[in-house]
Write a protein that binds this DNA or RNA. Structure first.
Lengths: 152, 152
DNA sequence: CCAGAAATCTTGACTCGTTCAAGAAAAGGC
DNA sequence: GCCTTTTCTTGAACGAGTCAAGATTTCTGG
């Protein structure tokens, strides 16, 4: 995934190719699962003049177009990743909020057969694994980087 | 689940039995998947003097104690339910944000065997089904009650 | 290469869910 | 009933995200 690919991705989605958009794509590539603030910081390393609103807008249109995927574990702010279209899942650390990718062992569309869906038409099954990351498992003083505590 | 049960639940969790707590439990029982604002409104029907902070506190301790379960689908505010301990899952409407319970057909601990967990110690697998609720499937003008749009 | 229309970005104010902090009130053991 | 501790009220504050208006940029077509 180099800048050339990004340009093609944007054009393929009928989006204009702009400096902020390329910078955001590069930032998300370099920092998988980064939140908006981190993306903004990464973007400004190369493009100091980009506004926070632009980053929100860009992440919004890229998500809608399916070029990036937005995830938001409970108690976390929105996070973004480039890995898209394979419906992989995520492990989230209850202690520090760290996120990692996980391929579900059950198959391509895990658990997509819910028993009684109450008439809902389902198009995606999203699995979030909750637990403790290696660092927090060992550490006696886990880094409290999460904004709110986990559900349990 | 009557008030007597609620009192026992609280005492069993070593929590004091107070009017606000009982009112919150009743509110969550009557309005499954309600957000904090709705719980507050329901509480104030019977206890007009209860503060919003009290409701936040109560929902917080009840969640920590496992008496209620807190869920927060991406793009939604926190929601609460009494049904607890059975690790059931949820369908969320992308259009209006409506939530319904779903029992996973795969088994009691669905998808809990992730392939490579990157050293995380996993204690829960949470499945969120995304789709369209019956009302929004039919309706030409879906109610836009969600705060932000869905991921895709 | 240049002009025009449409999309995108900047600026700055603002909303809303949630949290923080300090003091008042209530719960429960003795 | 009294005392200690927990819980609640009050009121301010925070931060992620949104809204809106005007300036810039992109890209199409001449």
């Amino acid at each position: 995934m180099d800048d050339h690919d990004f340009e093609h991705l944007l054009r393929g989605a009928e989006l204009r190719v702009t400096r902020p958009r390329l910078a955001v794509l590069r930032a998300v590539r370099r920092h998988p699962h980064a939140d908006t603030g981190s993306v903004l910081a990464a973007v400004r390393v190369e493009q100091p003049a980009v506004s926070h609103q632009a980053v929100y807008d860009v992440l919004g249109v890229l998500s809608e177009s399916g070029l990036v995927r937005r995830i938001q574990p409970a108690g976390s702010v929105a996070r973004y990743e480039l890995r898209v279209g394979d419906n992989h899942h995520h492990v989230v650390c209850r202690s520090c909020g760290e996120v990692a990718d996980v391929d579900c062992a059950v198959g391509v569309r895990p658990c997509l057969d819910a028993s009684d869906t109450h008439g809902f038409v389902i198009d995606e099954a999203e699995v979030t694994y909750w637990g403790t990351c290696p660092a927090c498992s060992t550490d006696r003083t886990p880094s409290q980087s999460r904004t709110t505590e986990g559900t349990r």
